[in-house]
Amino acid sequence: MNHNVSSSRAIGLIARREFTVQVMKKSFVISNIIILAAIIGGIVAYSIFSGGGEDRDAIGVVGDQSIAAVLQANGDAIGYPVEVREIADAAAARADVESGDLAVALVPGGSGAYTAITDSELIGALRAVVEGSVQTQATDGALAAQGVDQAALAAATANATVTVTAIDPPDPEAGQRVALSLAAVFILYAQIIGFGMYVAMGVVEEKSSRVVELLLSTVRPLQLLWGKILGIGAVGILQLALYGVAGVGAGLATGVLTVTGTAISVFVGTLGWFVLGFAFFAVLYAAGGSMVSRQEDVNSTTMPLLVLIMAMFFAAFYSVGDPESTLSNVLSWIPPFSAVMMPLRIAAGVAPLYQIVGTVLIMAATTAALAVVAAKIYQRSILRIGKTVTWKEAFAR
């Protein structure tokens, strides 16, 4: 029992040392301030310049403005709101259409008819609004001439509505979900590669400077390994949390993000899967770093890991457009692809609870088994100074 407490204390001390060294670096502080400012500034700028208000086609009306209210009501009714402007005469209306200030101008003719002046042709929803409004005004005028009580008529026909029941309704938040998916995938890609390399570089730096020999005189190799991974991993979680809070907070504050529940679930899911993905690769990066004695040789032993990470994220980017595809569903169960596929599926709202729990358990179990192998490689290689140990040699020993 005392040995376990001592081991835990040693790992904790090494982890705190790694965490403190990383966060106290001037480069770390400055770079994160710049990145946070860029995240917040970019979201604020997007909210300002993306045309926060909805674009509406402008319809000009010459003469009697009684049809203006009908145009606006019909536009709102079919989900195509329009802006109506009073125009002095037909010549001004034509000039405004030619300049692009108006989408269409209505010039009254005889007997309730109108001439529509457009740049090319009147099509789609705009045509429906214009023609429907002219017909509605003409009908109201005819009913009034016949002495029909329009209030009573409106009350009698108020229930004549169509209720739409869609089997597969469109997701109004689909665009934001895709954006959140892309953000989660990109951030995880950068974080796992970046902090995985931090682990490898830290290991080889201690090995090349012979500091590791001093450390291993007081702690065991596995204590040093796990202390380093936990300390650097904590820095990664802190940094990811700062980015997430800044991004989600700025997005919700500016109205760029409106899917509060989705945004928070993606944020939490990304943090959790970073822990699993980082743990998976950190033990391998530590093993890779222990196999070389110079920092410039790190890429030779960590290249297979980089190739695997790139394969993961190419698959994730391919699946962003269709997170319910067979590829996305299958790869989400396979470590380490789970680390990027599951945040993507969570963001898209297509990950059932059993899949989230199942993939977490599989990823954790795989990482634990891998950690045993990587720890043996680390123990065998960390004190071998000079010649680079290949993966084949590391596994064969």
Results as ranks from 00 to 15, higher is better:
residue 174 A to E: 06
residue 168 D to N: 15
residue 184 A to H: 06
residue 170 P to W: 07
residue 109 G to K: 13
residue 114 Y to C: 09
residue 146 Q to K: 11
residue 151 A to V: 13
residue 173 E to C: 02
residue 176 Q to M: 10
residue 149 D to K: 12
residue 177 R to T: 03
residue 105 A to V: 04
residue 100 G to C: 04
residue 151 A to R: 14
residue 129 V to Y: 04
residue 167 I to T: 15
residue 175 G to Q: 06
residue 139 T to F: 11
residue 126 L to C: 00
residue 121 E to P: 01
residue 103 A to K: 03
residue 162 V to E: 04
residue 103 A to D: 01
residue 146 Q to E: 11
residue 131 E to P: 02
residue 181 S to I: 04
residue 139 T to H: 09
residue 126 L to Y: 01
residue 170 P to H: 11
residue 171 D to W: 05
residue 119 D to R: 14
residue 125 A to C: 06
residue 117 I to K: 04
residue 124 G to F: 00
residue 150 Q to A: 12
residue 183 A to P: 00
residue 106 L to N: 05
residue 147 G to H: 08
residue 166 A to K: 10
residue 133 S to Q: 01
residue 147 G to Q: 06
residue 118 T to V: 15
residue 158 A to Q: 13
residue 103 A to P: 00
residue 128 A to M: 10
residue 95 A to Y: 10
residue 107 V to H: 12
residue 110 G to Y: 09
residue 108 P to E: 08
residue 146 Q to S: 07
residue 126 L to V: 01
residue 109 G to E: 10
residue 153 L to M: 12
residue 96 D to A: 15
residue 96 D to Y: 11
residue 116 A to V: 05
residue 121 E to L: 07
residue 174 A to V: 07
residue 127 R to L: 01
residue 179 A to V: 15
residue 118 T to I: 10
residue 178 V to Y: 11
residue 162 V to K: 05
residue 139 T to V: 14
residue 150 Q to E: 08
residue 177 R to S: 02
residue 170 P to V: 08
residue 119 D to I: 09
residue 183 A to T: 13
residue 121 E to V: 11
residue 109 G to M: 10
residue 101 D to Y: 09
residue 114 Y to H: 14
residue 154 A to D: 11
residue 160 A to Q: 13
residue 105 A to E: 02
residue 129 V to E: 02
residue 117 I to D: 01
residue 148 V to T: 12
residue 179 A to Y: 04
residue 103 A to E: 01
residue 126 L to K: 01
residue 130 V to G: 00
residue 143 L to A: 06
residue 165 T to N: 11
residue 140 D to I: 14
residue 107 V to P: 01
residue 159 N to P: 04
residue 128 A to H: 07
residue 180 L to I: 13
residue 181 S to V: 05
residue 146 Q to N: 11
residue 167 I to Q: 15
residue 171 D to G: 07
residue 160 A to V: 12
residue 106 L to W: 05
residue 136 T to F: 02
residue 111 S to H: 14
residue 112 G to V: 03
residue 175 G to W: 05
residue 174 A to D: 03
residue 161 T to D: 05
residue 138 A to T: 13
residue 112 G to C: 03
residue 97 V to D: 00
residue 109 G to T: 02
residue 179 A to F: 08
residue 110 G to W: 10
residue 168 D to L: 11
residue 107 V to R: 10
residue 104 V to H: 03
residue 106 L to T: 02
residue 175 G to M: 05
residue 151 A to F: 12
residue 129 V to L: 03
residue 151 A to Q: 15
residue 95 A to N: 12
residue 170 P to D: 03
residue 122 L to W: 01
residue 167 I to C: 06
residue 117 I to P: 00
residue 129 V to M: 02
residue 143 L to W: 07
residue 127 R to C: 00
residue 116 A to M: 06
residue 99 S to P: 04
residue 184 A to K: 10
residue 154 A to T: 13
